[in-house]
Structure formats: C-alpha cells, structure tokens
C-alpha cells in the first residue's frame, strides 16, 4: 500500500531564529519511520523505510542538520547569516563564500531563464503588499515608490563579490527550501540511504522507492482547504516534486483575486496565475523553479510547462 504524504503549496519560509527545535520520531502504520522537525518556516519530515529507529534518528538528524544549517545561513532574519549581511551592506560590496556564490549564480541564472520574472530582489515589494486574505490593496504610488529598489539587473555580481545598490535587498526564500531538500538528499545518499522521502514544507525529494519497490504517494494539497484535503495523490519513485501556489496568501477586492506572485517589473501580482502548480523533475530545486516560472507566466503557465515537457499538475 503506497504512503500518502501531504504536500502543501509552498510559501516563502518565515525563518525562525534558533530556538529549541525537537526532532520527533514515530513509526507510521505503513511500517516506515517518520521523523519530523520544524525548519525553514514550516514542518519538515523525512520518511525512512527501515526497521531500526536508532539509525533512523541519526539519518533524520542528518537531514535536519542540513535544513537548520541552510536556514541559519540564508534566512533574512538571522543576523549572523549571509543574506542578512548582504542586505545590511549599505551599498558596499560583499565577498561571498563558495556555497553562497553558487546560490547567487543560480539565482542569476533563474533571472535570465525567466526573462527577469524571477527576481531575488523583489522581496522589497512586500513592504507595500500584505497578503493576509483581506481586501486592502496598496496605493499605486506606494508600489511605484518601491520599484527603484527592485531589479536584479541593478546588482553588480562578479562572483564571489556582490554589490547591491543602497536600499536593495535579496531574499532567497524562493530557492532555499528546495535547495535544502536537495542538499539533505545528498547527505542521506552519501550515508547510503536509498529508500527515503524528504518533505520540507511541501517541497519533496524521493531517494528511491519504498523498500518493497512501491512508490511513495505524495498528496497534492487542496489550496481551498489547505492542510485538510488532498486533490490528488502523485506516485514518486525517485526525484523532486515541488508545488508553488498562493494557498492562503492572496487579496480579494471587488471579486478580483490578487495572488501573491508579484511581477518584479510592475510591482503588481501576475494576472491569471493558477492557484497551484506542482512539477516533477529530477531534483527538487528544478521542480521548484519550474513551478515558480510557471506561476510567473500567469495564464500561460500550462503552455509553458507543456512546452518544457515536464510532468505537472495545475489547479486553477
């Protein structure tokens, strides 16, 4: 019998500072071990098909350690982290380490591949937009006032040196969780694991099928009843699965729905974007970026994903 894992539409993590964070372990009725811990702004779980809870505890700890390491380095809120350092450089250049440089390179590539739609500097727009399910839209003037501080093209990036103009910020929330999933998967793979599933707040990677050869069943969250219902169960043998969506984060005004996916060029939500896009790809980060790119295409999301030839599930 396949295992169902609920996958929520991912939201940019609200990273928590270091507090007491437990790893809890339980054995599911299906026989696999489920390790749970909070990280990257949400619940995380690692599913391991092995009988020995002690070994499972070690492996879950390995994955959790990676999640917490990435969270502490790349959370905007962690004053000791790299992103905080970049955002508080006040226009001065910052020299990055190898891993951070690779992340910025990747974000730079995503900016190019999405024709500027994916932009790690667009987080500044959140000062105007409060996606709380209410109906208060920002004034066009308030949005326009922020636009000069948005645009990756304004940053000077010569790896390993990054210089942001004064007043600009970056936010790796759109990459970090998927990146953490893939890095945790690398850790587990290096430890010899080949029957496990990693799910960090809805971003998923399977390191191989269950021990009996059956796929893990990943449930796609119903954006209308998030956390309560699954609209579909997706079998996953190996590889990444990520979902991008607006779940609870949208505004409604005069019957019109404003999703939380913002166009960095206009500062306004992308029109006609689906409620949720799920994509399967060889890695979690590929799946996550393709889902995000599709959201940014608005009503063309499906056309884009079909042209890319990836397996996908869209909820409009």
């Amino acid at each position: 019998m396949p295992v169902c894992v609920k996958q929520r539409a991912s939201s940019p993590p609200k990273m928590r500072s270091a507090e007491k964070r437990p790893v809890s372990l339980r054995t599911a009725s299906e026989g696999h071990v489920v390790g749970e811990f909070p990280a990257l702004g949400g619940p995380c779980e690692v599913l391991l098909d092995m009988p020995d809870p002690e070994a499972a505890r070690y492996l879950v700890g390995l994955a959790a350690g990676e999640a917490w390491r990435i969270e502490s380095r790349y959370s905007r809120y962690n004053a000791g982290g790299v992103v905080h350092q970049i955002n508080n450089a006040n226009g001065k250049p910052v020299t990055l380490d190898e891993e951070s440089g690779a992340l910025i390179d990747f974000a730079d590539a995503c900016h190019r591949l999405s024709d500027g739609a994916f932009d790690i500097t667009s987080g500044v727009l959140r000062r105007a937009w409060k996606f709380d399910g209410g109906n208060r839209l920002p004034s066009p003037a308030a949005v326009a006032a922020l636009l000069p501080h948005v645009g990756w093209g304004r940053a000077i990036w010569n790896r390993p040196v990054l210089q942001l103009p004064f007043g600009m910020e970056i936010d790796l929330g759109g990459i970090g969780k998927e990146y953490a999933v893939d890095q945790a998967a690398r850790q587990l793979a290096a430890a010899g694991v080949n029957n496990a599933l990693i799910n960090f707040g809805g971003d998923v990677f399977a390191l191989g099928p269950r021990a009996n050869g059956e796929p893990w069943m990943v449930g796609i969250d119903d954006p209308r009843a998030t956390g309560k219902a699954c609209v579909r169960a997706v079998p996953l043998h190996r590889g990444g699965l990520a979902t991008s969506g607006d779940a609870r984060r949208f505004l409604k005004r005069s019957g019109k729905r404003y999703g939380h996916i913002l166009n960095p060029k206009t500062g306004w939500p992308v029109q006609g974007a689906p409620r949720s896009v799920s994509v399967k790809a060889s890695s979690c980060i590929d799946a996550g970026m393709l889902a995000t790119f599709a959201m940014l295409k608005g009503s063309d999301a499906e056309v884009f994903l079909e042209a890319e030839g990836v397996e996908h599930f869209i909820i409009w």
Binding site: L62, R69, E98, A109, C110, D182, Q183, Q187, L290, G309
Partner: peptide, 26 residues
C-alpha cells in the same frame, strides 16, 4: 528524448553546479 526543453535543461545545468558547490556536512 529532449524536445526543445530549453529552460528545463539550462535550469538543470545550473542546479547541478549549485548542488555540488556545498561540501557534504560530514
């Protein structure tokens, strides 16, 4: 077989170099 999946293949090249940049923690 690939069928003109330009963004996907470029993305996966970029992500491959990203994932290998970080050392294994242990």
């Amino acid at each position: 077989k690939e069928k003109g999946a330009s963004v996907r293949s470029l993305l996966s090249a970029a992500s491959a170099s990203l994932l290998l940049a970080a050392p294994l923690a242990h």
